[in-house]
Nucleic acid binder design. Structure first.
Lengths: 281, 281
DNA sequence: AATATACATGACAAAAATTAATGAGATTCA
DNA sequence: TGAATCTCATTAATTTTTGTCATGTATATT
């Protein structure tokens, strides 16, 4: 079944206000309506979100966690819908995979801006699947070819990943084979899928729980440099660190999670985008 | 009125599948139901999202923009709800304002990790209002005191902002007074509110449109260093750059947007959090 | 104690979403 | 060419969801 987005939104407001009454006023509903929404949501989720302490409402630990995480995406949606559509015809919106922005896009983009000062650019982080682009937009990320779409895909970087760590960590924890890696501190972003995959390619199975979780590649890389453990990084994004020795490759085995591409609607639809893509490739 | 979150979710699926039929199957609904949802949504938003080209559905430019931006928060919600609640009793979740992570939190945290290797930490980006914490969580950000809550707030950094630019930009565009700043390229993150505020404090009004928009402080700072214009930065986060001269302050006038705090549920509720906070302050 | 506050509950009503039936264009292909 | 098919639109009926009202319970205030 689909997630009850409206009820989840109500729930996050209730946690914010710590009051059904206040939330009801805010939404122009009765207390009863809000109470019912919460009860229904609790039933669907299978755990309780609030309990009563006196006539005060208290949030359960699970409720706190949920609301804390839910507030970001709901605020995000509200922001998107309230955003003015200030699309000057010269404006290009560039949706880019977060990990690529810092280590690949930004240096190039700034050089580009210096040479083409008239371009108006909006840069947005974007991780999920390609979706659909208009003629003022450009996407950069790792996406498989959607055979049925009319989009132009240009490869910009290899997506091959290798395990790396800092020299300090290397000295502490000697790694001679892929198998030895199973004994190290495996760092990863929001999913350890990459590691499972990599070990599977070596005929090994990862079943140890991993310790530190980082929300994005930037945090992950910083932690690796600081000798927290071993991370699986796209080789193309850590060239500098491998050269300078801040990071050391622990294996020559690469797992290929696909490459990075620039995706645009149509090469000839928008000359500004055309120019930008030519520059970036 | 409240945003129709469910319809928005349906809409983003329709764009993803480029088909009412496919979306209907996915949601276990009839085509008709999906069609109605979209029509209602279009009526509410006041603009059309699709048009028919042959028997194929095409997305309007506004629809494309909307769906592109909507996919991230909806994916986020789905991820939150599918996440296992793997809260070991030793795990601390640290919710931090994105701008603080790189320039303030991470260096300290990594030192902390080195000294306390047994701590299990999950770090998450979090921008919005404080909401409610459980005893395994810690928030770091700029939040006003909520007088009625039982939370402990410890100030960690000043939030005062000043206008800065790179030396190269400084040479190009001479700035002698606050008023001169109105003629420069004003860089900002997702809102130009900060600038309006700063100019208002100097008795000036900003009505020029701003050019380049960055989604977060990290992008903003990089662009400023690359001589794209003038940015309003929290002084505490660019100390190093001011010292080294990569960034130069263009005024001594500061606008105070509040300070940065560590917020925890209760100083004595969780000794691990206690230790961590003591270390960070 | 009396009164007010905050939430819960159940029966019912209102509103909203979904379906079913039908239709209109567009494509496919025999 | 024209019959079959495909995709979405539309209308009216129906079902489901959501909200309201009346009432109840526990807690706090005076």
């Amino acid at each position: 079944m689909r997630h009850p987005y409206t009820a989840l939104h109500t729930f996050h407001l209730v946690v914010r206000f710590q009051s059904l009454k206040h939330t009801a006023d805010h939404l122009h509903l009765t207390e009863s309506a809000v109470s019912h929404q919460i009860k229904r949501l609790e039933a669907q989720l299978g755990y309780s979100l609030f309990y009563k302490s006196g006539r005060q409402l208290k949030t359960t630990p699970e409720g706190k966690r949920l609301s804390l995480e839910l507030s970001a995406p709901f605020d995000h949606i509200d922001q998107i819908l309230s955003e003015p559509k200030n699309t000057t015809h010269n404006t290009i919106t560039l949706y880019c995979l977060p990990s690529l922005i810092e280590f690949w896009l930004l240096p190039r983009l700034l050089k580009f801006k210096a040479e083409h000062p008239n371009y108006e650019l909006i840069i947005k982080y974007h991780s999920s699947s390609p979706d659909y682009l208009d003629e003022h937009s450009l996407r950069i990320g790792s996406h498989e070819q959607e055979s049925h779409t009319p989009y132009i895909r240009s490869k910009i970087l290899s997506g091959e990943t290798i395990p790396v760590c800092s020299p300090i960590y290397m000295n502490r924890q000697h790694v001679f084979s892929s198998k030895d890696l199973l004994e190290t501190d495996l760092l990863h972003d929001h999913t350890e899928e990459g590691w499972r995959n990599w070990f599977a390619l070596q005929g090994l199975t990862l079943n140890k729980p991993t310790q530190l979780v980082y929300e994005d590649f930037h945090l992950l890389k910083m932690a690796t440099i600081a000798a927290q453990g071993v991370a699986l990084c796209p080789e193309a994004l850590i060239q500098e660190d491998l050269k300078s020795g801040t990071l050391i490759a622990l294996s020559t085995k690469r797992s290929n999670i696909g490459h990075y591409y620039a995706i645009e609607q149509n090469k000839y639809a928008h000359t500004n985008i055309n120019t930008l893509v030519e520059y970036l490739i």
